[in-house]
Nucleic acid binder design. Structure first.
Lengths: 210, 210
DNA sequence: GAGGATCCATGCGTGGATCCTG
DNA sequence: CAGGATCCACGCATGGATCCTC
């Protein structure tokens, strides 16, 4: 948290210079660049720094791109959807719940007309779902995973789920992974991920910053 | 087979120059180099050439390093041992049998005092196990896999098996994979591979070249 | 605006085998 | 000598997310 206070208000340009990484022209070919930069600066795993590993303290870091009004511009990727192994799982044991149990949110300016180097970080903060939020997440997860397990994956769209949605997550639409089909058979389909809707993330930010 | 005739007798130096790859000083840091060179020259998968894929004709290629008397200097790696998934398998359905069903053997000079560029290829030839060889392989495989499935993997040494043996196959001894333990529990152990003993490979060469 | 599609970095497993010490 | 240990290349999956059309 000390390191978090130290980065609040700094620009991506300053941070990139500080750790000596090159800044891409834009994010089209480097979509995860901001997240990886911030991980490195804060000393998470992905950086090969001799710093404490966030996993060892059970904290997941997520950057959240903000528009000029401070609202999330994008959904937040959570984890991949278990397309075949989901049958024995429950919300309590799920990968999604573990990922969302303790999140370090890092707000980042992300208006398109703001160049990458001049975009600044907000103040990072730790969050865990309150009972109401956890209940919504659990309900969404259970409804979606029930469909997945019953072979109804193909009829799931991103419109399902109040807070948690399922969307494609792959290099491209030709990428295939095994899943359960309508008759219980094995089918090949595009890999999917769980994502948090911007409206949900927005509520978290409002809850914290008032 | 036409391409095979064309490479017989050529040196590794000639072949490397032909396809424009650099020759390492020795094989210590490039153990698979010879195999990958020959694959590329013959137009197998691994080469990104627009040539027929050996997999499409069901042929596995193996280089075999020879001493000055024409005897194999090393064992031949076949495939990894299924440490957890072996229970439902039989020799008939096994990965090892598929790999060994049709092999293109490529003899290569490999005396240590022969420099890499001057080592020459012998004449490659296609081989499939004859009934006697298949019987030996099947027996070895069945005995070894029975031990693996019964949780006796840790007591298997490279001394087991007439033709097919099990030895470590990993980056190093710290690499771990899941396997079945003595009480049927899940244990972590070093990954293993199936290998053909040099004596078996030697018999194949004698059978072919007389 | 948001659903569907896509992009890069990196770790891990497989496939190519040979090294090396008791 | 050969059993046990190791090394590189490369593909694929995961983790970091944003792009890009309706």
């Amino acid at each position: 948290m000390e390191r978090c206070r130290a980065v609040a208000g700094r620009s991506l340009g300053q941070l990139a210079t500080q750790i000596g990484v090159e800044i891409p022209d834009d994010l089209r070919r480097a979509k995860g660049w901001v997240g990886q930069l911030v991980e490195a600066v804060l000393g998470a795993d992905a950086a090969s720094l001799a710093e404490p590993d966030f996993r060892t303290i059970g904290v997941e870091m997520k950057t959240v791109p903000l528009d000029f009004k401070g609202r999330p511009r994008e959904s937040t990727y959570v984890c991949t959807v278990p397309l075949e192994q989901g049958i024995g799982e429950t919300w309590a044991t799920s990968w999604a719940r573990r990922k969302l149990a303790r999140v370090l949110w890092v707000p980042v300016e992300a208006e398109r007309d703001l160049s990458l180097p001049e975009r600044r970080l907000g103040t990072p903060f730790l969050w865990s779902p309150d009972p109401g939020q956890e209940s919504i997440l659990r309900t969404d997860w259970e409804e979606l995973m029930e469909m997945v397990c019953l072979g109804q994956l193909e009829s799931i769209t991103a419109r399902f789920g109040r807070a948690l949605q399922i969307r494609p997550k792959a290099a491209n639409a030709r990428t295939m992974a095994a899943a359960i089909g309508p008759e219980g058979e094995r089918i090949l389909t595009n890999p999917r991920g769980f994502y948090l809707r911007p409206s949900f993330t927005r509520a978290i930010l409002q809850q914290h910053f008032g």
